[in-house]
Simulated scan of single mutants.
Amino acid sequence: MKNLIWLAMNNLKVTFGKKKGIISYFVLPVVFILIPIMIYSNVGNSSVRIGIIDKDKSSLSTDFVKAIEKQDSLRVIDINNENPKGEVAAGKVDCVITIPNGFEGSVYNNSLKQPEILSLKGESSTVWINNYSNIYLRNLIDIWKASKGNKQIFNKIYESSKENSLSFKSVSVKDTTKGKSMTSQSIGFLIMFMMVGASSFAEIILKEKKNRTYFRICSAPVSSKIYIFSNVISNFAIVAIQSLITLLAMTKIFKIQTYVPFWQLYIILLCFGFVAIGLGLLLVAFSKDSTQSNVLMNLIVTPTCMLSGCFFPVDFMPDAARKIADFLPQRWVISAIEKLQTNGNFSSICLNILIILAFAFTFFIVAAYRFSRDENIKNFV
């Protein structure tokens, strides 16, 4: 036990003997939290900007424009009527509504001419105006049908309805999407740093093989199992501290609302820490030198993090990529967090935890088998 603790402490001393180790393990994961914060900082903060072109200039079209102007979620902006596409393309407005000629007459003919909506952003910028417009215009048609084609009756009903005109009541609700998305991406970057850090830390074994320190240690009353286990202990200590610092930065410094209890997030990350450590040992076990280990790490870590949804939601990926993601441990971490964010309890992610630990167990078993078959310690260069 004394040798185990000494070896683990020596590994930590070697790693953090330079400032570079502290920066790469503890500072960079916190800095990278700023990326999702900047991405989501302006999401959902502004109303939809609308330009309106009234070609009909009738009483019904004028009332329609006034009704739109009253809505809190919609902001009408003056535009150049001759070049509506240019106004949208320049970003001055989110969409342009064009009320066609004969709009009022089409109501009286029971063949409504729908206003045209021009937008470059798709449904995200037009959903509110579409909903309001459809309800408002349907109301006009219903009034005309109720008047049975009599304009005088229509005008009386219409004027009466204007006193109790249709409107949307604006109520502020708590937006949870930004906090949840920032949490997933922040944890995604942390996962990447955990995998890179664990792999880099495991390279101590390669370095000590190269300078024959590994051989000298194993010649002393210390078995190779104790040596590898000390690497796992010191590596896990780093992962635990790294996860704790990053989570504290997310919740206390950057004030990200995770919608997941702190301890549950921490347990998930600790479980994944074993995966990262196991993968690091696996890469070292199959590498002849540090260069080969780094190449393997780059070929595995970044692509798998991208496919598993660490950097962006898997919903953006094709079905084939989503199926591949189910075979990656990172995906099960992100999935566990998403389940907890949707009011799931900790028991709902038991399967996720078991699968994550199964990945770790598999990596450790394969790495241990590979180390046990290594017969070239003396000839390592």
Rank of each mutant, 00 (worst) to 15 (best):
I5N: 11
L7A: 00
M9R: 06
N11I: 08
K18T: 01
G21T: 07
G21E: 08
I22P: 11
I23D: 14
S24Q: 10
V27N: 00
L28S: 09
L34V: 05
I37V: 07
I37F: 13
S41N: 14
N42W: 12
N42E: 14
V43G: 01
S47L: 09
V48W: 09
I50D: 12
G51V: 09
I52R: 08
I53K: 13
K55L: 07
D56V: 12
S59L: 03
K66P: 10
K70I: 05
L74I: 03
R75A: 10
I77M: 05
I79Y: 14
P84E: 13
V88Y: 09
A90H: 13
V93S: 14
V96H: 10
I97N: 10
I97C: 04
T98K: 00
I99S: 09
F103L: 01
F103V: 00
F103R: 05
S106P: 08
S111R: 06
S111E: 15
Q114T: 09
P115K: 12
I117D: 11
I117K: 05
E123I: 01
S124A: 09
S124E: 15
S124H: 12
W128V: 04
S133W: 12
L137H: 07
R138F: 12
I153H: 14
N155I: 11
I157Y: 15
I157S: 14
I157M: 15
S160Y: 12
K162F: 07
N164M: 08
S165V: 03
K169A: 04
S170R: 13
V171T: 13
S172D: 13
T176I: 11
T177W: 03
T177Y: 06
T177K: 03
S181G: 01
S181V: 00
S186F: 02
I187P: 11
G188K: 06
G188P: 11
F189E: 05
I191V: 02
M192W: 13
M192G: 03
M195G: 01
A198H: 03
A202P: 04
L206A: 00
K207W: 11
K207G: 02
K207Y: 11
E208P: 00
E208G: 00
K209W: 12
N211S: 08
I217P: 02
S219P: 07
S219Q: 12
A220P: 12
N231G: 14
I233W: 10
V239P: 05
I245S: 04
L248E: 08
I253W: 06
I253H: 01
K255R: 09
Q257S: 11
Q257H: 11
F262I: 01
Y266T: 01
Y266E: 01
L269T: 05
F272Q: 14
A276N: 09
L279H: 12
L281D: 05
A285L: 05
S290Q: 15
S290P: 09
V295E: 13
M297F: 05
L299A: 08
V301N: 15
S308C: 04
P313L: 01
V314Q: 03
M317N: 07
A320V: 02
A320T: 04
A321S: 03
R322H: 07
D326N: 11
F327T: 01
V333G: 09
V333L: 08
I334L: 05
C350K: 15
C350T: 14
C350I: 12
I353D: 07
A358V: 05
F364N: 04
F364V: 02
A368Y: 15
F371V: 00
R373Y: 13
D374V: 01
I377D: 06
